[in-house]
């Protein structure tokens, strides 16, 4: 059993009003006999940063995975930009503009940073009927993205040999490849240094300025309060959490 996550429109800042990017109504998820989520209603508007907090096992990651298309919800409806959507695979969600930084980062250790950033959407050049990888363009774009994140990550290095912060930068850089409308970050600041946390938070600010909605899941309260306009809490104990607003 889990508490409800409520975000009422009244709580959202005036700038972010209008049609919500993401609207969840009555989302529920059961894993066999375990009810992981129950009756989640939520609205996220463009340029809004929603923090999702809760105890371990509260269902934060489950909610993210439902929105990201990892598995379908048992109940409820997801509307993206006003249209009801059904995601069967993660690429379905990505196709409409939802990018996710997973908690385990979803990186292939044996590939380079640039290869990981572009995994599944490699840049290619065509030669007749054949398409070859455009290593140069991918490395250059990856370097640019790492620069934006102020991360000391070299595109041609293997992820295997990277620190936690560098790995995180690779995973976050991935979300910047396309013009995402909603970026969800599952514990993006868990493994990185204070300086890099600042970079991630300022990145979130910049996303917000561009009208991208961000959903931030974190255990670190200061991070959440630093960037979030709306904070939704969840937990086993509180059946109905009240959203707290913080400017």
């Amino acid at each position: 059993m889990i508490g409800r996550i409520i975000t009422s429109t009244a709580m959202i800042t005036a700038a972010a009003a209008g049609q919500p990017v993401l609207e969840l109504t009555g989302i529920g998820k059961d894993f066999g006999a375990i009810r992981a989520l129950h009756g989640i209603d939520m609205r996220v508007s463009p340029g809004e940063v929603v923090g999702l907090m809760g105890d371990n096992g509260a269902g934060k990651s489950t909610l993210v995975k439902i929105i990201a298309g990892n598995f379908p919800a048992n109940h409820g409806e997801i509307r993206f930009e006003g249209n009801a959507v059904h995601f069967y695979r993660p690429i379905d969600a990505r196709a409409v503009g939802i990018e996710v930084v997973y908690q385990d980062l979803a990186l292939a250790d044996n590939l380079t940073a640039a290869a990981n950033v572009f995994l599944g959407r490699e840049l290619k050049w065509k030669f007749g009927p054949f398409a070859f990888l455009d290593h140069k363009a991918m490395a250059a774009r990856a370097l640019e993205l790492f620069g934006e994140l102020r991360s000391e990550t070299r595109p041609q290095h293997l992820v295997k040999q990277m620190s936690g912060g560098q790995r995180q930068a690779v995973a976050i850089a991935r979300t910047r490849l396309s013009n995402a409308k909603l970026v969800m970050m599952d514990e993006p600041t868990a493994a990185i240094s204070v300086r890099q946390v600042e970079q991630v938070l300022s990145l979130i600010h910049r996303l917000k300025e561009q009208g991208v909605a961000v959903m931030l899941i974190s255990h670190r309260m200061p991070d959440v309060f630093a960037v979030c306009s709306v904070v939704a809490r969840s937990g086993r104990t509180s059946r109905s959490a009240t959203p707290v607003r913080k400017r």
Partner: peptide, 22 residues
């Protein structure tokens, strides 16, 4: 030098990540 080859390596490196990245 092809996307297929890269996917082959990605599959061996982290199959779950390969799935998640489409």
């Amino acid at each position: 030098h092809t996307a297929f080859g890269r996917h082959v390596f990605a599959l061996g490196g982290n199959e779950k990540a390969a799935e998640l990245t489409g």
